[in-house]
Design a binder for these strands. Structure first.
Length: 598
DNA sequence: GCCGTTTTCGGCCCGACTGTTTTCAGTCG
């Protein structure tokens, strides 16, 4: 859990900072967890959890909503939550939250990381044995004291000890790219089994979330047993955690959990939709179904009208696809990437939804490295791979000299590289065109790492931050905006510098940077390295509406790394982007015109 | 704590699986 400390703890009184919506959302999540541990009403807990999500996906500026007293107009924010948002936003500290935190030992919160332990069991352990830390829990299990509590037994102790041993690797989220590869390999195996009619992955992986907690696999079959047996015997399975007639769960080597659900073919679409989620999307669709007189579940649709009683209804035959399912409720097909419970259902009422960008729309990429800086493959090897992928063009943007740690190029080496690229283009050896670029460091004061006359010689310039990550939010924001305003800057690389599950991004006001990019007609990169996916998908829709153009860039440091563009396309789809919003779906002719190349 | 075409109270998604129990509570998704 992400325990947030309010402003008063981290800063002296004179420096209390205005709290942004994401920090407030984190606090609401904590409140949810703490209330759970105190045994509060489950719906109250849900209200805080959904309040957190609502805040994060606010379309309007939080400060505007507060100033105009319109917070309670937002669905999911009532008076109680609105009051707490106002206090946190203005004062950075919330006595209600501080008191709640003080009333629950920190150790109980950590115990939630143990698989199979939820709030109720943790409370029971605390009340019966005074266990308030993982260390004490482990000791109690080893001494056989846990089995003596009502509702616990010998197996509980064993499972808790396993959970404690594995909690780090089990609680870790996995990069989408890695999870996708694992899922594809299992799906391929499943689809070869004679008993399998259909097989798909679902969950956050199918929705294209940047990280994935576990794999959800949905299979249609009338004969589950041989499929379950095949599944739990895979070499990648480290442990079988549940096995039943319709559902089995395994823990794979590496810590990823995989759940397999087997349903009759007539229920496949319902199950696929249900387990794709998100939970919030499902709640909204079910509410819509109820308003139309139906009840929707993973098993099907039933009529709720009194004269009908409760009976199966809806389709004469089982729906073949999710498209039919959405159509039944008067909606356009909602691609999985959009199912985050924001506004996709309202928008699907008035078809069509935007025609989202696809992998095959890309005609090239711009931010790639070669052995001239810190790449693993030569210029020609990169170009060969790009040609094999089928693109029309590729841009090379190696590091500039300030990125010493990445073997950044000085003026002379850059000039040599440009010369090599021009010769390669002229040689006719490859069908694909190579654009000359650079990933030019944004120095701590916002100046660029090369002089104007050097940059003007290039086809395009990616500007990125690679140093002084600890600058204040204000300093970093003006630093990046200054770089964007530079006449030679074409696009901004990785806007926050985040590395998923490893490093937070540097502090920067992304909204202001987006506005600056829009005002100056500059591109923002969607860095498609699966560990980055930066700028985040949550910001793209609004950025595109403001007229900001996107470039999906693999930031490839090897020829294979070019394939990361797929992760970028998935993130772009989550950001509601269409092909035309993305520079590198344009033809070479249109790109060259945009870059004002003769 | 939120919400309202059943609107200020009463409902809020619900089923599979496990372990401990002898009919069910807790966890998970």
């Amino acid at each position: 859990m992400n325990v947030v400390h309010s402003g008063s703890r981290d800063f002296p009184d004179c420096l209390v900072l205005e709290m942004d919506k994401n920090s407030i959302a984190d606090i609401f999540r904590d409140v949810g967890v703490l209330l759970e541990l105190k045994g509060e009403n489950a719906f109250k807990i849900r209200a805080y959890q959904s309040g957190a999500r609502t805040l994060e996906s606010l379309e309007e500026e939080l400060s505007v909503l507060i100033a105009e007293d319109r917070l309670t107009d937002v669905k999911g924010i009532g008076k109680a939550l609105a009051d707490k948002v106002c206090i946190l936003h203005g004062e950075g500290v919330l006595p209600f939250y501080e008191d709640l935190r003080a009333s629950v030992p920190d150790g109980l919160i950590n115990m939630l990381e143990i698989a199979g332990l939820g709030a109720k069991k943790i409370r029971a352990l605390y009340e019966a044995l005074g266990v308030d830390s993982i260390e004490k829990l482990e000791k109690a299990c080893r001494e056989g004291r846990v089995a003596s509590i009502a509702g616990f037994g010998a197996k509980s102790e064993e499972k808790i000890l396993i959970g404690i041993r594995n909690r780090e690797v089990y609680s870790k989220r996995h990069i989408w790219w890695d999870a996708f590869e694992v899922a594809q390999s299992i799906l391929e195996g499943l689809r070869k089994l004679p008993a399998v009619k259909r097989a798909e992955h679902a969950g956050s992986l199918r929705r294209g979330l940047e990280t994935v907690g576990d794999l959800d696999l949905i299979v249609a079959s009338a004969d589950p047993l041989p499929i379950m047996n095949w599944f739990i015997r895979q070499k990648t399975v480290a442990e079988v955690t549940a096995i039943g007639e319709t559902k089995s769960s395994v823990r794979l080597h590496g810590g990823l959990q995989a759940d397999l659900r087997i349903v009759p073919e007539v229920q496949f679409c319902y199950a696929l939709h249900h387990f794709t989620g998100s939970k919030e999307h499902n709640v909204l669709l079910r509410q819509r179904a109820l308003r139309q007189g139906y009840s929707l579940s993973e098993w099907g649709i039933t009529s709720k009208s009194e004269e009908d009683g409760e009976r199966e209804c809806g389709f004469d035959a089982a729906p073949e696809s999710e498209k039919e399912l959405f159509e039944f409720f008067g909606l356009d097909f909602i691609p999985p990437e959009l199912r985050e419970g924001t506004s996709e259902i309202e928008e699907a009422e008035n078809p069509p939804l935007p025609n989202l960008i696809r992998n095959e729309d890309l005609k090239g990429v711009f931010h790639n490295h070669t052995t001239d800086s810190d790449g693993h493959n030569t210029l020609e090897e990169m170009v060969e791979m790009a040609e094999r992928i089928g693109w029309e063009y590729i841009g090379i943007a190696d590091h500039s000299k300030a990125s010493f740690q990445a073997n950044g190029m000085n003026e002379g080496r850059l000039a040599n590289q440009v010369e090599s690229i021009r010769e390669l283009n002229q040689s006719g050896k490859y069908r694909i065109h190579v654009y000359t670029g650079v990933e030019c460091d944004i120095l701590p004061d916002g100046e660029l790492d090369f002089d104007d006359d050097i940059l003007e010689e290039l086809d395009y310039v990616v500007v990125s931050v690679h140093s002084s990550f600890s600058q204040s939010r204000e300093a970093m924001t003006s630093r990046i905006i200054k770089a964007i305003e530079h006449p030679s800057a074409t696009m901004l690389g990785h806007i926050t510098g985040r590395v998923l599950s490893r490093r937070e991004g540097y502090r920067v006001d992304q909204e202001k940077v987006i506005d600056a990019a829009a005002a100056n007609g500059k591109i923002i990169e969607l860095n498609a390295n699966p560990h980055r996916l930066d700028m985040d998908w949550r910001l793209w829709r609004k950025a595109a509406e403001k007229g900001v153009l996107c470039a999906i860039n693999p930031d490839a440091h090897s020829a294979d790394g070019l394939c990361y563009y797929r992760a970028g396309v998935t993130a772009a789809r989550k950001g509601w982007l269409k092909a035309d919003n993305v520079l590198n779906t344009w033809t070479r002719k249109r790109v060259s015109e945009y870059l004002k190349l003769g």
